[in-house]
């Protein structure tokens, strides 16, 4: 069976490699991909949208529908992870470990036992793996705000440099995951609760679709940001630039929420109790 699978894989790979011989050479100006719409994008981006980064204007303006449904795909991935993994909390807790800070003793409290209050004396620790290092904790605590600031820069500066809502959102989510790994999952959930993360998922999609709908209400096509000029009191070209920014912020919020909520569900096996 394995040999049969190997033969099929080699055959498919051979066909694919044979297929590449039909491709136009790399960066060929005569190739079909760079003769029809690409010259239009390259020549008209500045006068249409006043955005120097052509990739951003193509993603968020010329092909806004495409990006909107990409965002919805990410949203669906987050919701699917939630439905697959999330389990509701049981009434009686499983066995937990508590660290008594004064004496340095670790207590195991079995199922159904009385739990100590979360106080100065008792600190709850994970049962399977206890990552505790003061250096890692403090260093990550110091780095996280700067990573988030960089992510905001990536979102806001997507018009001029590589980056945009998707990358910025992933970086904010990664900063939150770094915080959850270096401290523990409960500390991260205390800062950004599950409800809030799920709210961000849908709020991002809502901002994107809402911007499109606003354009429709103002009398132009769906996602035609030129219509926003009426409420922003600018010319249509600047309005397109601002519309792209609004959409990028929506994508960023959605992606951030999805990344964080997938991590919460995956690392705690859906219990949101003890994580990586």
């Amino acid at each position: 069976m394995k040999a049969f699978a190997l033969i099929i894989v080699i055959l498919c790979a051979g066909l694919l490699i044979y297929g590449t011989s039909d491709f136009p050479p790399w960066s060929d100006p005569e190739s079909p991909a760079s003769t029809h719409v690409s010259p239009y994008y390259i020549e008209h981006t500045i006068e249409d949208t006043s955005v120097p980064n052509i990739v951003t204007s193509v993603l968020a303006d010329y092909r806004g529908f495409d990006t909107m449904f990409e965002t919805i795909v990410i949203f669906t991935a987050g919701i699917a992870c939630f439905f697959l993994l999330r389990v509701t909390k049981r009434e009686d807790h499983e066995s937990r470990l508590y660290h008594h800070l004064v004496t340095g003793v670790t207590l195991r409290i079995k199922e159904g036992g009385k739990l100590p209050d979360e106080s100065e004396e008792f600190r709850r620790v994970d049962t399977e793996w206890v990552p505790y290092s003061l250096i890692i904790k403090i260093t990550c605590r110091l780095i996280v705000p700067f990573i988030m600031l960089f992510a905001l820069y990536v979102i806001a500066h997507g018009h001029h440099s590589p980056g945009g809502g998707f990358q910025g959102g992933v970086i904010i989510g990664a900063a939150m995951i770094l915080f959850a790994i270096s401290n523990d999952l409960r500390a991260a959930i205390l800062r950004l609760s599950e409800k809030m993360a799920t709210f961000f998922c849908s709020a991002g999609v809502f901002i994107y679709a809402g911007t499109g709908l606003l354009c429709l209400l103002l009398g132009l096509n769906f996602l035609d940001y030129g219509a926003l000029a009426k409420i922003l009191f600018t010319d249509p070209v600047t309005a397109r630039s601002h519309g792209i920014l609004a959409v990028e912020i929506g994508v960023g919020i959605a992606v951030m929420g999805v990344v964080v909520s997938i991590y919460y569900n995956l690392s705690s096996a859906g219990k949101h109790d003890e994580g990586l």
Binding site: V170, I171, G173, A174, I177, I181, V259, I262, Y263, L266, S267, G275, L276
Partner: peptide, 11 residues
């Protein structure tokens, strides 16, 4: 390289 590696490892 960033987030999906974290997802793999937590899985």
């Amino acid at each position: 390289a960033g987030v999906s590696t974290v997802f793999f490892i937590s899985a």
